[in-house]
Structure formats: structure tokens, C-alpha cells
Amino acid sequence: MFDNAGRVMFTALHAAAEARLGPDHPCTRALATAARTPEPEAVRAAESLLRALPDTDRTALMQAAHQALRTDPAAWLAVWPDGKRGH
């Protein structure tokens, strides 16, 4: 499970960015890529675009992602690879 923690976080951040910034915003697209494949290059690109956002947007995205992960345990379960639950 914990090897997917980055995917979980980027999935939550992507949903928050889509709602706040729209699906075509460069940060939203970078977060989607990092959520699908959290490889170092994708993670660096997403982090860079997050840092480039105005503080109000960046804070709002982090708050929304944190709330989603805190209040919806299914958000963690949704990204577990098939066949690895409970191991």
C-alpha cells in the first residue's frame, strides 16, 4: 500500500486542481500525470507547477487534498493495485 502513497496524494491533488483550476491548466495536467505514474520526472514537474501557483491556489489545493484523504478512507483504497490489498 505505502508504495502507492504518492499516487494517492497526487490523485487527491489532481481532483482538487481540476475543481479549482480546470482540466486544461498546466498544473492540473501535471498532477494527473504524477497520479498515473509517480516517476521522479513527473513528480518534479508537478511539484514545480504547484510551487508556481499563487499562494492562495496552492494552499486551497493542499487543503482540499488533505480534507479528501482525511475524510474519505476509500480514497486510499481506490489506488491499491489489484491483488495487493491486505498484504
Rank of each mutant, 00 (worst) to 15 (best):
M1K: 11
F2G: 15
F2Q: 14
D3K: 12
D3E: 14
G6H: 05
G6P: 01
R7M: 10
R7W: 06
V8S: 02
V8I: 13
M9P: 00
A15H: 09
A19I: 01
A19S: 15
A19Y: 03
A19Q: 15
R20K: 15
L21G: 00
L21Q: 04
G22S: 07
P26C: 11
R29W: 05
A32K: 13
A32I: 04
A34Q: 02
A35P: 01
A35C: 06
R36E: 15
A42V: 03
V43E: 11
V43T: 14
R44C: 02
A45H: 05
A45D: 09
L49E: 03
L49T: 00
L50F: 02
R51H: 11
R51V: 08
A52V: 03
L53P: 09
L53H: 09
D57V: 09
T59R: 13
T59G: 05
A60W: 01
A60Q: 07
L61F: 00
L61T: 01
Q63E: 11
A64Y: 04
A68H: 04
A68K: 03
L69R: 02
L69T: 03
P73N: 08
L77I: 05
L77V: 05
W80C: 08
P81N: 05
D82Y: 10
D82S: 10
G83V: 12
K84P: 00
H87G: 14
